[in-house]
C-alpha cells in the first residue's frame, strides 16, 4: 500500500519536474529573446568601428578588449570655432529635456485623466454619455492625424515661431498636446465605475465635497490603475520622437530620442557610427533601468492588479 503511494509520488514528482523544465526552458527562451537586443547594444558600444562591421560578427568581447572610446567620445567638446567647448553630443542637455518633458507630460496627463474620468464616471450632467462617446470615437482616429491640427494649435498659441521660440515655449509645445489621453480616461473611468456608488454616498454623508471624495477616496482606491497610467505615459513621453522634432525650432530643445537618431550619422556619407550610437543608447537606457529596479515592486503591482474589488 505504502509502496504504491511512494511510486505514485515518484511518478508525480517526475511529471512535475518535467513540467517545470518545459516551463523554465520556455521562460528562458523568452528572456533571452528580450535580453539579446540589450546585450547587443552593450556589446556594440564596446566595439571599435572595424569590429562592428566584422563578418562573421563578434558575439562576445573579453573585458580587456573593451573599447571605452565610444563612451569617452560622447563627452568630447567642440575643439574650435564659435561653439568651442560645447559638447559634441549634448547628452546632458538632451537628458534634462527628456526628463522634464516626461515629468510634465505625465503630471499633466494624470491630472486631466483623473478629473475627466471622475466627471465621466461619477458626475451627472446633460450630454455626458454623448460627450464620452465622442471622445471614444476620437480613439478611432490614428494619432498621426492629430499631428497637423495639434501643430496648428501650437502655432496659433504662438509657441512655434522659428525666430522667437524660447525654451519655455518649446516645452509647452512638446507637452501640452499630450497632457490628455482618451484611452487613459477610458481606462481610469472603468476603474472608477467599479467603485460602488455607496462609497460616494457614504462620503457625501461623511461631509466631503466631490473634489475631496475624488482625492481622498477614489484616487487612492484606483491607485494601481493610476500607477499603470503613469508608467505607460512616462514611457511614451520618454520615447517620443516625431512630435518633439516637429515643434522645436532648435535642436537644443529636443529630446534624447531625436539626438540618438541624428547625432551619429555622418552627414556626408549617411553612415552611422553605431558604436557611439549604442554607447549613447546605453546611457539613455540606464536611467530607465535604474527607475525600474528601484520601483520594481510598485510597477509590478500596478501592472498586475489593474482592477479593484468592489
Amino acid at each position: 500500500m505504502s509502496e504504491i503511494f511512494v511510486q505514485n509520488e515518484k511518478a508525480y514528482k517526475r511529471k512535475r519536474i518535467a513540467g517545470n523544465i518545459t516551463i523554465y526552458i520556455f521562460l528562458a527562451l523568452v528572456a533571452i529573446s528580450i535580453l539579446i537586443p540589450f546585450y547587443w547594444m552593450i556589446l556594440t558600444s564596446f566595439k571599435n568601428e572595424t569590429q562592428i562591421t566584422q563578418i562573421p560578427p563578434i558575439l562576445a568581447l573579453s573585458p580587456s578588449d573593451w573599447k571605452l572610446s565610444n563612451y569617452t567620445d560622447l563627452f568630447l567638446t567642440v575643439p574650435s570655432g564659435p561653439r568651442a567647448g560645447e559638447p559634441l553630443f549634448p547628452f546632458f542637455r538632451y537628458m534634462a529635456n527628456t526628463v522634464l518633458i516626461s515629468l510634465l507630460t505625465t503630471v499633466g496627463t494624470t491630472i486631466t485623466t483623473i478629473l475627466s474620468a471622475f466627471a465621466f464616471s461619477r458626475l451627472n450632467f446633460k450630454g455626458r454619455d454623448t460627450l464620452f462617446a465622442v471622445l471614444l470615437a476620437t480613439m478611432m482616429v490614428p494619432g498621426e492625424i492629430f499631428i497637423l491640427t495639434n501643430f496648428l494649435t501650437i502655432n496659433k498659441f504662438g509657441w512655434y515661431n522659428i525666430f522667437t521660440q524660447t525654451y519655455g515655449q518649446a516645452i509647452l509645445a512638446m507637452t501640452i498636446p499630450f497632457m490628455v489621453s482618451v484611452f487613459y480616461i477610458f481606462y481610469l473611468r472603468q476603474t472608477f465605475k467599479q467603485i460602488p456608488n455607496e462609497l460616494y454616498f457614504a462620503a457625501k454623508v461623511d461631509g466631503t465635497s466631490d473634489f475631496k471624495y475624488l482625492l481622498k477616496i477614489m484616487v487612492p482606491i484606483a491607485m494601481p490603475t493610476i500607477v499603470t497610467i503613469i508608467i505607460l505615459n512616462s514611457m511614451g513621453a520618454w520615447s517620443a520622437y516625431i512630435w518633439p522634432a516637429l515643434v522645436t525650432a532648435n535642436d537644443k530643445y529636443r529630446l534624447v530620442s531625436n539626438g540618438l537618431r541624428g547625432a551619429f550619422t555622418d552627414t556626408s556619407t549617411g553612415r552611422t557610427d553605431y558604436g557611439q550610437q549604442m554607447a549613447a543608447s546605453v546611457l539613455v537606457t540606464l536611467p530607465l533601468l535604474i527607475v525600474f529596479f528601484t520601483f520594481r515592486k510598485q510597477i509590478m503591482r500596478g501592472v498586475s492588479r489593474s482592477g479593484i474589488k468592489g
Binding site: V78, G81, A84, P87, L88, T267
Partner: peptide
Amino acid sequence: IYGEGKSAL
C-alpha cells in the same frame, strides 16, 4: 543638418 561638432567650419 550639421551637428554640433561638424558645424564648426
